[in-house]
Structures are given as C-alpha cells and as structure tokens.
Design a protein around this nucleic acid. Structure first.
Lengths: 243, 243
DNA sequence: ATTCGACTTGCGGGAACCCGCAAATGCCTT
DNA sequence: AAGGCATTTGCGGGTTCCCGCAAGTCGAAT
C-alpha cells in the first residue's frame, strides 16, 4: 500500500511521517510532497491510493490539489489535516468529493490516538471521518439559525468578489429581486445589524458587514476568496475565448 | 538573561527552544508559554526582558499580547516570528512598538543562520530587524503606487467593519467628502476596477471589492479585522458608560 | 510675494442598494 | 381539490454610495 503525504511544514511532516508509519504498518511505501503541485504530480505518477494532505500550503492549496487528484482518480482516499476548523474548508471539500469516495478531516491539534484512528478509518477502511470539532461548528450554526444553504453560500461568494446584484442575478440566472432576498437571509443569518449598537444611527453597510461577519465567524476564509477569484478570472477568459 | 518563548505549536516550540539555546548561550533561563495570555502573565511575573513570540495563536494573538507587555515594560525586546508575510501584521506591530525599543520580525521559513542572526541582533544587541521578505512587500507596494498612508489604512479598517461614510467621518472628525476622497485613493491603490473585465457592465461594488482586494493582497488580514472589531466594541461600551 | 501642489470641503446628480408590499408559482398536507 | 407555506418576481421609493466640478486652505518651493 502506497501512502502519499503532502505537507509544507517540515516539523509537521516529520511528525506525520512517524504517525503514519506506526499507524499503518501495511504502508510499505511512503511518498512525501512539500506542496500541492508536487502532490498532484506524485499522486499521478505513482498511482497513489491513499493521501494525507495539509490544507494550508503556499504554492497550491490542498483543496485545489484534491480536486485535480480526484478528477483523475476518483477512488483516491484523502485525509485532510488542518490547523483551522473553518467551515469554508469543509464546504470546499464536500463540494468536490466524488461519489462513494472516502475522505476525512482532522485538526492538527488532535491526539495521537485520534489521528491514528482517522488514518486507519479513512485510508484503510474507506470510511468518512470528520473531526468532531467540525461537526460542532456545523451544529452550532444550524441551531443558531445560521446554516447557509448552498445557494446562499454561492451568493455570498459573489458578493465577496464585489459583484453587483445584477451581475449575481445573471450568473445564477435568477431575478434581481431573488438575489436581494438571498441577501436578506444572508444578512439575517450572519447577524448583520446585530444588537443595533448605540452611537450609530442604525445603519451599517450591509454588504461589507456581511463579508466581515462571514470572515469573523469562519464561514468564509481568505483562501476561499482566492480560489473564487481565480475561478472567476478563468470564467472570464473562457467567455472571452468563445466570443 | 531570561528569555521567554511564546508559541502554541509544540513542534515549532521544540525547534525554537533548540535554536535559542544554541544561539544565545547567555540565556540561562528559558521560559515557555503556549498562548498569548500565558505569555503576558509570565513576562510580567518573571520580568522578562527578551521574548520570541509567534503571531498566530488561538487564545490571544501575538500583537495583542505584545501591546500589554510593552505597556507594562516598554524596554522589553520582542522578536516576532510568523508564518505569513502579511503587511497587516507589520503595520499592527509598528503601530504599538514603544520609542527606542528593539523588536524584529522573521518568517518561520528562514534558515537557521538567519534566525540565529535575528535572535542575537534583536535580543542581545537591541537592533531592529525586519525580514527582507517583508521589506520586499513594502517596497513592491510603494513602487506599484499602493502604499497606504496611515489615514487611508484607518479608513480601510472602518470600511471593513461596515461603517457608513458618515460614521467614519465622525470617528475621525473629518468631513464626509474627505472620507470619500480617502476611499477614492483606496480604490485606486487597491486596484479596484482593475482592467475593466468584459462581461461586466463596468460596475462592481467598490466597497466590498476594496475589502477583498485588501485581503487578497495581504494588506489586511482576518486577525486585524478581529482586533478592530473588538476595539470598536470596547469603544462603544466605554461611550455607553460615559453617557 | 507668488506660484504651485496637495488636501479639504460643499454641492449635486446618477447609480446601486435595501426593503416593504403584493401578486404568482409550486409543493405539501389533509 | 382546497387550503397553507415557502420561494420567486415585479414595483416603488428612501437611503447610501460614487464622483465630477469648483472653491477654499496651507505649506513649500521659486
């Protein structure tokens, strides 16, 4: 069994290597990659079936690497391990995970045993394992009434890119007023207008406020913005090509 | 000589400990703290004069910890070491560093020798040392015409909090039109309106766009938003108290 | 002293945003 | 089939934002 580790921090890589060696005795070949691009390359070249991947990497982030890997070999099992419990990461992953594919998400702060379990459960047993920290986040949001639907999330992304309502409506082929309704529920769920502080005549800039609230609550993160930005530029280039 | 290390990642802490021990033989007492709060506490209790501190920590971030430490003992020498070369961090630091105080900023990715040099130069010699990565960033921005002045930065923060122009004007006691002028130069420097993409009737929401551009270019980061938000809440509480 | 440039302020209007009101559509329950 | 209930869409107008134009202030350079 081949296992590929993708991680750009040398200390974490060292630790990870040890843990994988001890948790997965059946791993007779352990490959190392130090950024997303190298990871994609190695996964392709060596036909790796099991991967442990960091999410935050400078050259190419884990979600993007995972997308190309999965698009080439959808059965690849990937365990993501990350410093942060951001909803945006989990959302980014669930958005691209293929049907019937095993994956997992653990935080770097978990104990050895938890990491061991996650490694075996995802890479060997083919389970889907999400760190309970993340589930807690999701739960908290739903019960606080702030679970974004997919279409709300999509609108939030477009808002964050600075698109005006009209353009958002066009991109999702919905009416202008519907976009505004989405925005209303976003403002509600993100608690824009929270508590109506005094010393403020009641108004804030809702669009901007929604964005910063999303960032502060970890509903969105800067990496998600970056890839959305890239995606948009590609889309524009493509449409320019067809015109 | 007492040295305090503040770092919440155990691997990095281990490495840092080794490096400090070998680079600073005069350090006869090395104290460890695992988050900002603990760091403040130890610094106060042990009257530490030299600190190496991580910037990203969950419980209390390095800049805030540094502020309270410096407010109590302005002569404390602090070397910040960080994963990211964000302008926002450097700006946050230079904003709070006392007169005639030694400090430094190095990235975690630098070589042992560079870290050695920074340790000796800042903590022993009392120099000011900024990693050249950061200088490169600052230079790039100035020559690209995008160095924000302090007042522009201040307006950017308020904008990011979602405040309307009128409120920003009040907080900085400038006229509404002046705020708008600041915003104009912000839009310019942050390259809102970049290249007028086709497929877009020419308009974007400038406020939101300015914020995401600032985030994407690392002019601003989420931690800066968090502390700005906290500061604003405190200010409101204070004003409520006086009323 | 004069000129110049950088900054501030007011005015005014076009565009975008925010949102209440109300009609239309589609799905679920009974 | 007949009522809810959620979602979508249009309309209208109040507010904020964006910004060109023009007049005023202030310090620095000539």
């Amino acid at each position: 069994m081949k296992v590929l580790l993708v991680e750009d921090d040398p200390f974490h890589m060292g630790y990870l290597e040890e843990q994988v060696a001890s948790a997965l005795p059946e791993a007779d070949e352990i490959l190392l990659a130090h950024d997303g691009a190298e990871g994609e390359d190695l996964a392709r070249r060596a036909s790796v079936g099991a991967i442990v991947m960091d999410l935050q990497m400078k050259s190419r982030n884990g979600i993007e690497a995972a997308r190309t890997i999965w698009s080439e070999r959808p059965q690849t099992r990937i365990l993501f391990w990350s410093n942060y419990a951001d909803e945006a990461y989990l959302r980014g992953i669930t958005r691209i995970v293929p049907e019937d594919c095993a994956y997992g998400y653990v935080l770097k702060t978990v104990s050895n045993e938890r990491l061991h379990l996650a490694l075996r459960s995802v890479l060997v047993q083919g389970q889907i394992t999400i760190d309970r920290e993340m589930h807690r986040i999701q739960k908290r949001k739903t019960e606080a009434g702030s679970a974004l639907t997919d279409s709300e999330y999509a609108v939030l992304i477009d808002l964050a890119l600075g698109l005006p309502d009209k353009e958002i409506a066009r991109r999702h082929s919905m009416s202008l007023r519907t976009v505004q309704n989405r925005l209303l529920s976003l403002y509600d769920k993100l608690e824009v207008d929270g508590e109506e502080e005094p010393g403020l005549d009641g108004g804030v800039n809702k669009r901007v406020r929604a964005l910063t609230r999303a960032l502060l609550t970890r509903t969105l993160n800067v990496e998600a913005l970056e890839s959305a930005e890239r995606a948009r530029l590609e889309e524009i280039a493509a449409s320019r090509g067809t015109v």
